[in-house]
Design a protein around this nucleic acid. Structure first.
Lengths: 215, 215
DNA sequence: TTTTTCTAATCAATCGTTTGATTAACTTTG
DNA sequence: CAAAGTTAATCAAACGATTGATTAGAAAAA
């Protein structure tokens, strides 16, 4: 019974995550979510208190494991900066594409200009992932492994922005890249390896010290 | 009178653009928009037919001039590929940041997974800008000015994704970059030149043929 | 006057949420 | 064991509030 209850709650969150990604937080009604999940509308409030409670529950389910993986890479003393950077990129691409619905949902809500409790909460969470990346860059520069003429902040924007572009604006990215980026098979066989290879190469070109990139 | 009417319609669109960016299409009610614009609610329907009509009117007001500028750069025979690329980046950064509310609004709606008439329309418009960029890259590769081992599609994702990250997720990008990216003064004095310099340098590092970037 | 612009009042529809009743399963009691 | 009591889970129905849209008519402009 306890197990069944958890499964059911998880099922509701799975469906809600997808519907929120499809229609946005405001566009997704509790009736659509409950209908698509095959449960009574009142169950959303019974389990999660409110519509916002559903949204936050989706959050807390995804965050914990996601953070720890990236933090572990940043703290790994056995790797040099280049290895950390490549490992970060690979882990990040895998996790984001595997949970693309969640990241679409997350980025839609953070892109609201108006500051709310929700945007604050999302910002804090995302900043932790950003901080790990920036720490890797800073260490690489300090140790001389990376070029010291680097715009760390905008390089961060490039890494996360490229990712966002691929998963968040998939109507466009699918046409740019030539296949449906929301298709699971394409994601695993084509998109993931291609995006990893590309990002590592792009970062290498920009960060490697032997090049003289000054304009 | 015709002039006054146009001014009023323009004022409504200015306000609506801002509110849509703040709250999203679904989150922005006609009452809030009309209230903030200081006009009667019924005026939205009187002038634009419907809420969606307001949204589309914002669109058509921004698009025409935006397209022509970029198309002109791509077609300029007097420039080589590097010059075209740099000019494209500069024009693009200027236009996007000057109209940041519009681009926030635009990207929020395109990020809905579900395909609608609206997402189709937005996709077609954006693809035109993308096509100009990709044409510049393709020409540069063909002429030997750029490296021929280039992932054009993902480089496109990087250019537009970096831009999106800065203007669309401004709660995050402001913290990453250290100042408020939505402040007009910061945008003109700090963000625009920095983003232009960075993107040109990044593209140069990735595209220049003399480097041996293969892994 | 005729036409255009604007408003207050109102519409049906939909929103998120709450309610009271019912079901099913487990515990306690006799 | 069986009856009574207790609990969480589920449901259909309804709640008040808000949504986008429409109306009839006043006000202003021509």
């Amino acid at each position: 019974m306890e197990k069944e209850k958890t499964d059911k709650k998880d099922h509701i969150l799975d469906v809600a995550e997808k519907v929120f990604a499809e229609l946005g937080y405001d566009g997704a009604s509790t009736r659509v979510i409950s209908g698509e999940a095959g449960v009574n509308m009142a169950m959303l409030n019974y389990y999660f208190g409110s519509k916002e409670g559903v949204f936050l529950a989706i959050f807390e389910r995804r965050i914990a494991s996601f953070q720890s993986t990236l933090l572990g890479i940043g703290a790994d003393e056995s790797k040099d900066s280049w290895e950390k950077l490549n490992k970060y990129v690979e882990s990040y691409v895998d996790r984001v594409i595997n949970n693309n619905c969640f990241h679409v949902m997350l980025n839609r809500e953070i892109s609201k200009s108006k500051k709310t409790d929700l945007t604050d909460k999302i910002t804090d969470i995302i900043m932790k992932n950003v901080a790990v990346f920036q720490q890797i860059i800073a260490e690489g520069i300090a140790s001389g492994q990376f070029n010291n003429d680097v715009d760390e902040a905008l390089l961060t924007a490039t890494l996360f922005g490229t990712k966002n572009y691929m998963v968040n604006t998939h109507h466009i990215s699918s046409r740019v890249i030539g296949y449906d980026v929301m298709d699971r098979k394409n994601q695993d066989e084509l998109l993931k390896p291609r995006l990893k290879t590309y990002l590592k190469k792009l970062l290498k070109a920009y960060l490697q010290p032997e090049n003289d990139n000054n304009n």
